[in-house]
């Protein structure tokens, strides 16, 4: 077992309105700890010293719920590719390291406290069309819809998105294109998604833009930061669908309208 001494610089902000600041905390960590377990250790020390612990979102701690997310040394979820902060382990650091921890920053992700940000804009993007309109009970037999294996696999590649927001955090423009494109692509590649394909992309893009995310200028930082390695190929597909849908849309249908 190897112990390492680290110096953390952590963004502390008491409330959405408060002016935040970086505070420095020393910590002793074990190489087998997860990054969040290391923060737990810091927090135990803070509580003992009478300082409020660092607030950070986390839940499953196995890389799938998408709750956790923070900038670790300038990188969303830290230095290891395809790894969420909760699955990042301290063996990725070495004794004596300084680690800078900041919240994900974007106008559409306002800070609530410390490292906790409000990502409800993502839910609203899904509300604008990120679904198949099928009521409970109305489905045909599962095998009545044939899906080529390769398409199912590619849809799955996109559907793996955990909605953590690392794409937005890493993008110099704070664009939510990868998140939106992952959902658009997931459903666009499946037969089930075809009937609403155009209306979906129009509605979701409109919502995405209205949430105050920046536009995509093809930096590809999102793809590099994505813990699920979702490809920007999905963004290209969404662009294509959006262009087609925009040109074909008839005025009376009204993009983004929702019905039961």
């Amino acid at each position: 077992m190897s112990t390492m001494r680290l110096t953390l610089k952590v963004w502390r902000q008491a409330s959405p309105e408060a002016k935040g600041e970086f505070r420095t905390y020393p910590v002793e960590a074990d190489e087998h700890m997860s990054f969040l377990e290391m923060l737990d250790v810091v927090n135990e020390g803070l509580i003992a010293a009478g300082e409020e612990p660092i607030a950070f979102d986390h839940d499953c701690r196995e890389g799938i719920c998408g709750s956790c997310g923070m900038m670790i040394n300038g990188k969303a979820h830290g230095p290891r590719a395809a790894t969420t902060a909760c699955q990042l382990h301290m063996r990725s650091f070495k004794d004596g390291d300084h680690i800078l921890i900041e919240p994900f920053r974007a106008s559409a992700f306002p800070v609530i406290r410390d490292l906790v940000v409000d990502r409800s804009s993502f839910d609203r993007i899904i509300q604008a069309g990120g679904y198949v309109s099928v009521g409970t009970g109305a489905a045909p037999d599962g095998n009545a819809i044939l899906v080529p294996k390769e398409m199912a696999e590619r849809a799955m590649d996109a559907a793996q998105c955990i909605g953590c927001g690392a794409c937005v955090a890493a993008c110099p423009n704070a664009s939510a294109m990868l998140f939106t494109a992952a959902k658009v692509s997931h459903l666009a590649m499946l037969p089930q998604g075809q009937p609403e394909r155009h209306r979906r992309v129009l509605g979701m893009v409109e919502q995405m833009d209205s949430e105050g995310f920046g536009g995509c200028t093809n930096f590809a930082e999102c793809e590099a930061a994505c813990p699920k390695q979702i490809s920007i190929e999905n963004i290209a597909r969404m662009n294509r669908d959006f262009l087609k849908a925009s040109l074909r849309e008839r005025e009376e249908t009204g993009a983004g309208a929702v019905s039961n």
Partner: peptide
């Protein structure tokens, strides 16, 4: 059936069946 209709990308055989 319900989940397939929603677009859950279940694993498939080459023939397109579940």
């Amino acid at each position: 059936d319900q989940c397939v209709a929603q677009g859950v990308p279940f694993a498939r055989e080459y023939g397109g069946l579940l």
